[in-house]
Amino acid sequence: MSSYKIEAGTAQHIGNRPQQNDRVALMTGARAPGYVLAVLSDGVAASAGAEQVLHTAKQVFDDFKPGDRPTLQRLEQVLRDIVQETHLVINMNAVTTDKQALASFVGLILSPHGEAVWAHVGDSRLYHFHAGECKARTGDAAYVEHLVASDRLPPDAARNHRKSKLLVNLLGNSRKDPFVTVGHQSGLAAGDVFLLCSDGLWHFFTDAELGAATSRGTPRQASEMLINKAAERSQGKGGNCSMAVIKLARPAQDAGEPGAVRRII
């Protein structure tokens, strides 16, 4: 079992948009004691896609029964199932409502065995820090390589047009299945921090700034500082801003079972 406690929280700000289209949640599995799922989704132009992401994530995670110790590949498959099932439901709903919903996805599973697995679609991001240093970050490099291989685009063309191409790599796109990138880390310890965030946050910060903010303060303190600073740097023109901060901390001597979630926000 893990030798740390989890301090975690979520935060959102509407920015200068008329409505909040991001959705973010922390979940524990009904049949998976000690496992934690963090999910963040940015709905494009509306919140329906992001709402469906969270709804499907809860259903899939509640059905997950890990057994003694699932492989990292099985944990990855849980996240892939959330993506594929959400994508299918959104497209089915589009047929009946005649309205297309699109959404990004970033998800993280923490196991009680000191393991983390994450998956990512679109322009929301996951960061993994240790002692303030960025150890991993999701991005579009793998998707650019996929475009070169599958669409036979010249590498320079794929890189030059990656922003427009990324817009179609979303859950709910009826013309193309989502391209999922995955990552994992074993041997987690106190001092590790994970940040899930929408582009309304990460657009305004360097990796080093995000690492320093999330490592020094509590999830609540980090969230408040980052939201305030994002609003300042956007000069009142920032979009929806959402995040989940998950910190692994040393348990107090009288703390409860290691790996239990302490929700800060």
Rank of each mutant, 00 (worst) to 15 (best):
K165C: 08
P18D: 02
M27R: 14
G259F: 03
V182Y: 05
A48L: 05
P178Y: 12
D140F: 10
M92W: 06
Y4Q: 01
A32S: 15
H55Q: 14
A101R: 02
T206S: 15
V39C: 04
H120D: 13
E145T: 08
L201G: 06
L248S: 01
R250M: 02
R17Q: 12
K5E: 11
G34K: 09
G132I: 06
G122M: 11
P18Y: 01
Q59M: 13
S47T: 06
V44R: 01
N169W: 09
H146Y: 15
V245H: 01
D22F: 07
E145Y: 03
L195H: 04
Q100P: 00
R137M: 15
I82H: 04
G9T: 01
R23T: 06
H184C: 12
G256R: 12
A48S: 10
Q185K: 14
G29L: 04
P258D: 09
L72N: 09
Q19T: 07
R74K: 13
L102Y: 13
V245D: 00
A141W: 10
D68L: 13
D254N: 14
A30W: 05
H113A: 11
G239K: 12
L195M: 06
G256P: 08
D62P: 02
L171F: 04
V121G: 07
V121M: 08
E145S: 14
A103R: 04
A46H: 02
A131S: 13
A11D: 11
H113D: 11
D98P: 00
N160C: 05
G256M: 09
S41N: 04
Q73S: 14
L201M: 13
K165I: 01
R175K: 13
Q221L: 03
V148A: 01
Q77S: 13
N173A: 08
A136C: 01
V168W: 06
E51S: 09
V53P: 07
A45N: 06
D151Y: 12
S198K: 07
V182A: 09
P155A: 11
P66F: 03
L126T: 07
F129E: 02
E85N: 13
Y127L: 05
K58H: 11
L226R: 08
A101F: 11
R263D: 02
L167P: 00
A213R: 09
G217L: 13
A222M: 07
S104C: 15
D177Y: 05
K165Q: 12
E145R: 14
Q235M: 14
R80F: 06
R216A: 15
G15T: 05
L26F: 02
K247H: 00
T56P: 00
Q59F: 08
H13K: 05
W202G: 02
A190S: 15
L26P: 02
L167F: 08
I265G: 11
K237F: 12
Q253R: 08
A189S: 15
V261C: 08
W118E: 01
T56N: 10
T86Q: 05
H87R: 08
I246N: 01
V193R: 03
G122C: 11
N16K: 11
Q52H: 07
S164W: 07
F194G: 00
A190Q: 04
Q185L: 08
S198T: 15
G139K: 10
A48N: 04
V182L: 14
L26V: 08
V36Q: 08
L126D: 04
